[in-house]
Simulated assay, not measured.
Amino acid sequence: MDFSLTDEQRMLVDTLDRLIADRVAPEQRRAMLETPAATPSALWQTFAELGLLHMPFTEEVGGLGGDGTDLMLIMQALGRGLVPDAYLAGLVLPGDLLARLGDDPQRERWLTPLLDGEHQLALAWQESEARYDAHGITTAARRDDDGWRLDGDKQLVLNAASAAALLVTARLDDGRLGLFVVPADATGLSRRDYLTFDDRSASDLILDDVSLSVDSCLGLDAAAALDATLALGRAALCAEAVGAMEAACEQTLDYLKERQQFGTPLSRFQSLQHRMVDMHLHLEQARSMAILAATSLTLPDAERDYRLAAAKAYCGEAARFVAEQAIQLHGGMGMSAECYVSHYAKHLVMFDHYLGDVDHHLDHVSDHLVDAA
Protein backbone atom coordinates (compact mmCIF):
# COMPACT_ATOMS: atom_id res chain seq x y z
CA MET A 1 0.00 0.00 0.00
CA ASP A 2 1.29 3.47 -0.89
CA PHE A 3 1.47 5.76 2.15
CA SER A 4 3.29 8.61 0.38
CA LEU A 5 1.75 12.07 0.77
CA THR A 6 0.27 14.15 -2.02
CA ASP A 7 1.76 17.53 -2.89
CA GLU A 8 -1.13 19.24 -1.09
CA GLN A 9 -0.57 17.16 2.05
CA ARG A 10 3.15 17.94 2.06
CA MET A 11 2.33 21.64 1.78
CA LEU A 12 -0.10 21.29 4.68
CA VAL A 13 2.59 19.69 6.87
CA ASP A 14 5.22 22.28 5.94
CA THR A 15 2.85 25.17 6.60
CA LEU A 16 1.80 23.82 9.97
CA ASP A 17 5.33 23.04 11.09
CA ARG A 18 6.52 26.55 10.24
CA LEU A 19 3.53 28.20 11.87
CA ILE A 20 3.82 26.20 15.08
CA ALA A 21 7.59 26.69 15.31
CA ASP A 22 7.04 30.43 15.01
CA ARG A 23 4.02 30.78 17.31
CA VAL A 24 4.32 28.01 19.92
CA ALA A 25 7.91 28.16 21.16
CA PRO A 26 8.33 27.03 24.82
CA GLU A 27 8.06 30.57 26.22
CA GLN A 28 5.04 31.35 24.07
CA ARG A 29 3.34 28.11 25.07
CA ARG A 30 3.95 28.88 28.73
CA ALA A 31 2.31 32.28 28.32
CA MET A 32 -0.67 30.71 26.54
CA LEU A 33 -1.17 28.28 29.43
CA GLU A 34 -0.81 30.93 32.13
CA THR A 35 -3.30 33.33 30.58
CA PRO A 36 -6.09 31.26 29.00
CA ALA A 37 -8.18 33.46 26.74
CA ALA A 38 -11.90 33.91 27.22
CA THR A 39 -12.19 33.97 23.43
CA PRO A 40 -10.34 31.89 20.81
CA SER A 41 -6.63 32.74 20.68
CA ALA A 42 -4.79 34.56 17.91
CA LEU A 43 -3.34 31.20 16.85
CA TRP A 44 -6.88 29.81 16.59
CA GLN A 45 -7.85 32.69 14.34
CA THR A 46 -4.84 31.90 12.15
CA PHE A 47 -6.00 28.28 11.97
CA ALA A 48 -9.38 29.56 10.78
CA GLU A 49 -7.80 31.82 8.13
CA LEU A 50 -5.72 28.91 6.80
CA GLY A 51 -8.77 26.65 6.57
CA LEU A 52 -7.51 24.23 9.22
CA LEU A 53 -10.78 24.43 11.13
CA HIS A 54 -12.71 23.53 7.99
CA MET A 55 -10.36 20.71 6.94
CA PRO A 56 -11.85 17.71 8.85
CA PHE A 57 -15.44 18.35 7.70
CA THR A 58 -17.31 17.52 4.52
CA GLU A 59 -18.17 20.11 1.93
CA GLU A 60 -21.88 19.51 2.62
CA VAL A 61 -21.55 21.15 6.04
CA GLY A 62 -19.14 23.90 4.97
CA GLY A 63 -15.85 22.05 5.35
CA LEU A 64 -13.02 21.29 2.94
CA GLY A 65 -13.66 17.56 2.66
CA GLY A 66 -10.52 16.34 4.40
CA ASP A 67 -10.24 12.65 5.25
CA GLY A 68 -8.66 10.70 8.09
CA THR A 69 -5.18 11.13 6.64
CA ASP A 70 -5.52 14.92 6.53
CA LEU A 71 -6.64 14.95 10.16
CA MET A 72 -3.74 12.66 11.05
CA LEU A 73 -1.24 15.09 9.53
CA ILE A 74 -2.74 18.05 11.40
CA MET A 75 -2.78 16.22 14.72
CA GLN A 76 0.81 15.02 14.29
CA ALA A 77 1.94 18.60 13.76
CA LEU A 78 -0.01 19.76 16.82
CA GLY A 79 1.55 16.95 18.84
CA ARG A 80 5.07 17.80 17.68
CA GLY A 81 4.57 21.41 18.74
CA LEU A 82 2.66 20.54 21.92
CA VAL A 83 0.04 23.09 20.89
CA PRO A 84 -2.31 23.88 23.81
CA ASP A 85 -5.27 24.99 21.69
CA ALA A 86 -8.11 22.45 21.88
CA TYR A 87 -8.27 21.42 18.23
CA LEU A 88 -9.63 17.97 19.07
CA ALA A 89 -11.76 18.72 22.13
CA GLY A 90 -12.99 22.14 21.05
CA LEU A 91 -13.49 21.55 17.33
CA VAL A 92 -13.27 18.01 15.96
CA LEU A 93 -15.33 16.04 18.49
CA PRO A 94 -18.28 18.43 18.96
CA GLY A 95 -18.14 19.55 15.33
CA ASP A 96 -18.29 15.99 14.03
CA LEU A 97 -21.39 15.25 16.10
CA LEU A 98 -23.04 18.46 14.93
CA ALA A 99 -22.26 17.52 11.34
CA ARG A 100 -23.72 14.04 11.82
CA LEU A 101 -26.85 14.86 13.82
CA GLY A 102 -27.68 18.55 13.49
CA ASP A 103 -30.32 19.91 11.13
CA ASP A 104 -29.68 22.98 8.99
CA PRO A 105 -30.72 25.59 11.63
CA GLN A 106 -28.64 23.84 14.32
CA ARG A 107 -25.60 23.72 12.07
CA GLU A 108 -26.05 27.35 11.12
CA ARG A 109 -26.28 28.32 14.79
CA TRP A 110 -23.41 26.25 16.18
CA LEU A 111 -21.30 24.57 13.46
CA THR A 112 -20.78 27.46 11.04
CA PRO A 113 -19.30 29.86 13.64
CA LEU A 114 -17.26 26.96 15.00
CA LEU A 115 -15.60 26.41 11.62
CA ASP A 116 -15.12 30.16 11.18
CA GLY A 117 -13.22 30.37 14.48
CA GLU A 118 -15.82 32.53 16.22
CA HIS A 119 -16.30 30.17 19.16
CA GLN A 120 -15.37 26.74 20.50
CA LEU A 121 -17.52 23.92 21.84
CA ALA A 122 -17.01 20.89 24.10
CA LEU A 123 -18.33 17.34 24.27
CA ALA A 124 -19.55 16.12 27.67
CA TRP A 125 -19.98 12.34 27.57
CA GLN A 126 -17.86 10.79 30.34
CA GLU A 127 -19.30 9.90 33.74
CA SER A 128 -17.52 8.55 36.81
CA GLU A 129 -19.58 5.37 37.08
CA ALA A 130 -19.46 4.59 33.36
CA ARG A 131 -15.68 5.21 33.11
CA TYR A 132 -14.91 4.82 29.37
CA ASP A 133 -18.24 3.24 28.42
CA ALA A 134 -19.96 5.78 26.19
CA HIS A 135 -23.25 3.89 26.52
CA GLY A 136 -23.27 3.61 30.32
CA ILE A 137 -24.83 7.04 30.68
CA THR A 138 -26.97 7.90 33.71
CA THR A 139 -27.52 11.61 33.05
CA ALA A 140 -31.27 11.83 32.47
CA ALA A 141 -33.22 13.83 29.92
CA ARG A 142 -36.97 14.19 30.26
CA ARG A 143 -39.44 16.00 28.05
CA ASP A 144 -41.64 18.75 29.46
CA ASP A 145 -44.12 21.21 27.96
CA ASP A 146 -41.48 23.74 26.94
CA GLY A 147 -38.68 21.42 25.80
CA TRP A 148 -36.24 19.29 27.77
CA ARG A 149 -34.81 19.06 31.29
CA LEU A 150 -31.44 17.47 32.10
CA ASP A 151 -30.14 16.11 35.40
CA GLY A 152 -26.80 14.44 36.04
CA ASP A 153 -23.03 14.77 36.31
CA LYS A 154 -20.25 14.75 33.72
CA GLN A 155 -16.55 14.22 34.35
CA LEU A 156 -13.37 15.31 32.55
CA VAL A 157 -15.02 17.59 30.01
CA LEU A 158 -12.09 18.99 28.06
CA ASN A 159 -12.31 22.64 26.96
CA ALA A 160 -15.56 23.29 28.84
CA ALA A 161 -14.19 26.52 30.32
CA SER A 162 -13.68 28.03 26.85
CA ALA A 163 -16.80 26.60 25.19
CA ALA A 164 -19.78 28.67 24.09
CA ALA A 165 -21.92 25.56 24.49
CA LEU A 166 -21.62 21.93 25.55
CA LEU A 167 -22.83 18.87 23.69
CA VAL A 168 -24.21 16.66 26.46
CA THR A 169 -25.23 13.01 26.22
CA ALA A 170 -28.25 11.96 28.29
CA ARG A 171 -30.44 8.90 28.70
CA LEU A 172 -34.06 9.23 27.56
CA ASP A 173 -37.06 7.66 29.29
CA ASP A 174 -37.22 4.93 26.63
CA GLY A 175 -33.55 3.99 27.13
CA ARG A 176 -32.16 5.60 23.99
CA LEU A 177 -29.20 7.97 24.09
CA GLY A 178 -29.94 11.59 23.31
CA LEU A 179 -27.58 14.46 22.55
CA PHE A 180 -28.31 18.05 23.58
CA VAL A 181 -26.74 21.45 23.08
CA VAL A 182 -26.42 23.16 26.47
CA PRO A 183 -25.34 26.83 26.38
CA ALA A 184 -22.45 27.56 28.72
CA ASP A 185 -24.58 30.04 30.68
CA ALA A 186 -27.61 27.75 31.04
CA THR A 187 -29.43 28.01 34.37
CA GLY A 188 -28.78 24.96 36.54
CA LEU A 189 -25.39 24.19 34.95
CA SER A 190 -22.42 24.45 37.31
CA ARG A 191 -18.81 23.75 36.50
CA ARG A 192 -15.63 22.95 38.43
CA ASP A 193 -12.60 23.82 36.36
CA TYR A 194 -9.11 22.36 36.77
CA LEU A 195 -6.00 21.46 34.81
CA THR A 196 -5.12 17.90 33.94
CA PHE A 197 -1.66 16.47 34.60
CA ASP A 198 -0.54 17.68 31.17
CA ASP A 199 -1.94 21.22 31.60
CA ARG A 200 -5.11 20.69 29.57
CA SER A 201 -8.22 22.60 30.63
CA ALA A 202 -10.93 20.27 31.95
CA SER A 203 -14.11 20.54 34.00
CA ASP A 204 -16.58 18.48 35.97
CA LEU A 205 -20.20 19.43 35.33
CA ILE A 206 -23.35 19.27 37.41
CA LEU A 207 -26.64 19.57 35.55
CA ASP A 208 -29.38 20.37 38.05
CA ASP A 209 -32.74 20.54 36.31
CA VAL A 210 -31.27 22.35 33.31
CA SER A 211 -34.08 23.64 31.13
CA LEU A 212 -33.56 23.53 27.36
CA SER A 213 -35.65 24.50 24.36
CA VAL A 214 -37.04 21.90 21.97
CA ASP A 215 -34.50 22.72 19.27
CA SER A 216 -31.59 22.06 21.64
CA CYS A 217 -31.95 18.33 20.96
CA LEU A 218 -29.55 17.17 18.26
CA GLY A 219 -30.75 13.58 18.22
CA LEU A 220 -32.90 11.10 20.13
CA ASP A 221 -30.88 8.06 19.04
CA ALA A 222 -27.30 9.30 19.05
CA ALA A 223 -25.45 6.13 20.10
CA ALA A 224 -24.11 5.19 16.67
CA ALA A 225 -23.08 8.78 15.88
CA LEU A 226 -21.31 9.07 19.23
CA ASP A 227 -19.40 5.84 18.58
CA ALA A 228 -18.28 7.13 15.18
CA THR A 229 -17.17 10.46 16.64
CA LEU A 230 -15.22 8.82 19.46
CA ALA A 231 -13.56 6.55 16.89
CA LEU A 232 -12.50 9.66 14.98
CA GLY A 233 -11.20 11.13 18.23
CA ARG A 234 -9.13 8.04 18.99
CA ALA A 235 -7.57 8.12 15.54
CA ALA A 236 -6.73 11.80 16.04
CA LEU A 237 -5.23 11.09 19.47
CA CYS A 238 -3.01 8.35 18.04
CA ALA A 239 -1.67 10.80 15.46
CA GLU A 240 -1.11 13.49 18.09
CA ALA A 241 0.80 11.00 20.26
CA VAL A 242 3.04 10.09 17.31
CA GLY A 243 3.90 13.76 16.84
CA ALA A 244 4.71 14.16 20.53
CA MET A 245 6.83 10.99 20.49
CA GLU A 246 8.77 12.32 17.50
CA ALA A 247 9.64 15.49 19.39
CA ALA A 248 10.51 13.59 22.58
CA CYS A 249 12.86 11.28 20.66
CA GLU A 250 14.51 14.19 18.86
CA GLN A 251 15.04 16.17 22.06
CA THR A 252 16.41 13.13 23.89
CA LEU A 253 18.88 12.34 21.09
CA ASP A 254 20.03 15.97 20.98
CA TYR A 255 20.62 15.88 24.73
CA LEU A 256 22.66 12.68 24.51
CA LYS A 257 24.82 14.24 21.78
CA GLU A 258 25.44 17.39 23.83
CA ARG A 259 25.83 15.96 27.34
CA GLN A 260 29.28 14.55 28.09
CA GLN A 261 30.56 12.15 30.71
CA PHE A 262 34.23 11.23 31.14
CA GLY A 263 34.94 13.54 28.22
CA THR A 264 32.70 11.58 25.84
CA PRO A 265 29.17 12.42 24.57
CA LEU A 266 26.52 10.18 26.13
CA SER A 267 25.44 9.22 22.62
CA ARG A 268 28.66 7.20 22.27
CA PHE A 269 27.68 4.78 25.06
CA GLN A 270 26.31 1.59 23.52
CA SER A 271 23.74 0.90 26.25
CA LEU A 272 22.19 4.34 25.70
CA GLN A 273 22.23 3.81 21.93
CA HIS A 274 20.20 0.64 22.46
CA ARG A 275 17.65 2.56 24.50
CA MET A 276 17.32 5.20 21.80
CA VAL A 277 16.79 2.44 19.24
CA ASP A 278 14.02 1.01 21.42
CA MET A 279 12.38 4.44 21.59
CA HIS A 280 12.44 4.76 17.81
CA LEU A 281 11.08 1.24 17.35
CA HIS A 282 8.10 2.10 19.53
CA LEU A 283 7.68 5.37 17.63
CA GLU A 284 7.65 3.73 14.20
CA GLN A 285 5.31 0.96 15.28
CA ALA A 286 2.98 3.58 16.77
CA ARG A 287 3.17 5.51 13.50
CA SER A 288 2.01 2.41 11.63
CA MET A 289 -0.90 1.98 14.05
CA ALA A 290 -1.84 5.64 13.68
CA ILE A 291 -1.97 5.16 9.89
CA LEU A 292 -4.12 2.07 10.42
CA ALA A 293 -6.47 4.10 12.62
CA ALA A 294 -6.72 6.98 10.15
CA THR A 295 -7.52 4.67 7.24
CA SER A 296 -10.08 2.58 9.14
CA LEU A 297 -12.67 5.27 9.86
CA THR A 298 -14.89 4.39 6.89
CA LEU A 299 -15.06 0.65 7.63
CA PRO A 300 -18.17 -1.07 9.04
CA ASP A 301 -18.68 -0.20 12.70
CA ALA A 302 -17.46 -3.45 14.26
CA GLU A 303 -14.27 -3.63 12.19
CA ARG A 304 -13.63 0.09 12.65
CA ASP A 305 -13.95 -0.11 16.43
CA TYR A 306 -11.73 -3.21 16.61
CA ARG A 307 -8.94 -1.54 14.63
CA LEU A 308 -9.24 1.72 16.55
CA ALA A 309 -9.09 -0.14 19.86
CA ALA A 310 -5.95 -2.00 18.76
CA ALA A 311 -4.32 1.24 17.56
CA LYS A 312 -5.20 3.19 20.71
CA ALA A 313 -3.96 0.37 22.97
CA TYR A 314 -0.62 0.06 21.20
CA CYS A 315 -0.08 3.81 20.94
CA GLY A 316 -0.86 4.11 24.65
CA GLU A 317 1.84 1.60 25.54
CA ALA A 318 4.33 3.18 23.15
CA ALA A 319 3.62 6.68 24.43
CA ARG A 320 4.28 5.69 28.04
CA PHE A 321 7.48 3.84 27.05
CA VAL A 322 8.85 6.82 25.11
CA ALA A 323 7.92 9.20 27.94
CA GLU A 324 9.63 7.10 30.59
CA GLN A 325 12.77 6.56 28.51
CA ALA A 326 13.00 10.26 27.65
CA ILE A 327 12.86 11.20 31.34
CA GLN A 328 15.38 8.56 32.38
CA LEU A 329 17.87 9.44 29.64
CA HIS A 330 17.70 13.11 30.64
CA GLY A 331 18.36 12.19 34.24
CA GLY A 332 17.05 14.28 37.15
CA MET A 333 16.69 17.41 35.03
CA GLY A 334 14.11 15.55 32.91
CA MET A 335 11.64 15.93 35.77
CA SER A 336 11.96 19.72 35.93
CA ALA A 337 9.53 22.13 34.28
CA GLU A 338 12.50 23.96 32.75
CA CYS A 339 13.37 20.85 30.71
CA TYR A 340 10.91 20.94 27.82
CA VAL A 341 10.88 17.17 27.32
CA SER A 342 9.09 16.84 30.67
CA HIS A 343 6.02 18.53 29.17
CA TYR A 344 6.00 16.05 26.31
CA ALA A 345 6.38 13.21 28.80
CA LYS A 346 3.38 14.40 30.83
CA HIS A 347 1.25 14.66 27.71
CA LEU A 348 2.30 11.19 26.52
CA VAL A 349 1.45 9.65 29.89
CA MET A 350 -1.97 11.34 29.93
CA PHE A 351 -2.64 10.31 26.31
CA ASP A 352 -3.40 6.80 27.53
CA HIS A 353 -6.30 8.07 29.66
CA TYR A 354 -8.10 10.09 27.00
CA LEU A 355 -10.95 8.24 25.24
CA GLY A 356 -10.05 4.91 26.86
CA ASP A 357 -6.86 3.50 28.32
CA VAL A 358 -4.84 0.44 27.31
CA ASP A 359 -6.78 -2.00 29.51
CA HIS A 360 -10.13 -0.76 28.23
CA HIS A 361 -9.16 -1.14 24.58
CA LEU A 362 -7.40 -4.47 25.06
CA ASP A 363 -10.65 -5.80 26.56
CA HIS A 364 -12.43 -4.65 23.41
CA VAL A 365 -9.84 -6.33 21.19
CA SER A 366 -10.10 -9.53 23.21
CA ASP A 367 -13.91 -9.57 23.01
CA HIS A 368 -13.76 -9.02 19.25
CA LEU A 369 -11.33 -11.92 18.77
CA VAL A 370 -13.46 -14.23 20.92
CA ASP A 371 -16.59 -13.34 18.96
CA ALA A 372 -14.77 -13.94 15.67
CA ALA A 373 -13.42 -17.34 16.76
Rank of each mutant, 00 (worst) to 15 (best):
E27W: 00
Y132T: 10
C238D: 06
F3W: 12
L226H: 11
F321R: 10
E240Y: 13
L111A: 11
A236R: 07
G90R: 10
T58I: 01
G263P: 12
A170T: 09
A294L: 04
F351I: 10
H54F: 05
H343S: 06
A235C: 04
F197R: 14
L281Y: 14
L172C: 02
L97Y: 11
R304T: 05
L281D: 13
M276S: 11
A184T: 07
S4Y: 00
L82C: 06
G219S: 07
L123K: 10
L121I: 04
R307Y: 12
A235I: 07
H364P: 00
T46E: 15
T229V: 15
A186K: 03
A290H: 11
G79W: 01
R18E: 14
H364V: 14
C217W: 01
L283V: 03
Q273P: 01
S336C: 07
L212K: 05
Q273R: 14
W44Q: 05
Y354L: 15
L19V: 03
M32W: 12
L369P: 04
L212R: 03
M279F: 06
T139I: 08
L73Y: 02
D7S: 12
V370D: 12
G51K: 03
E303K: 14
T229P: 08
T35M: 11
A326L: 00
L205S: 02
E8M: 03
T6G: 07
D22P: 00
F47Q: 04
T69G: 08
S41G: 08
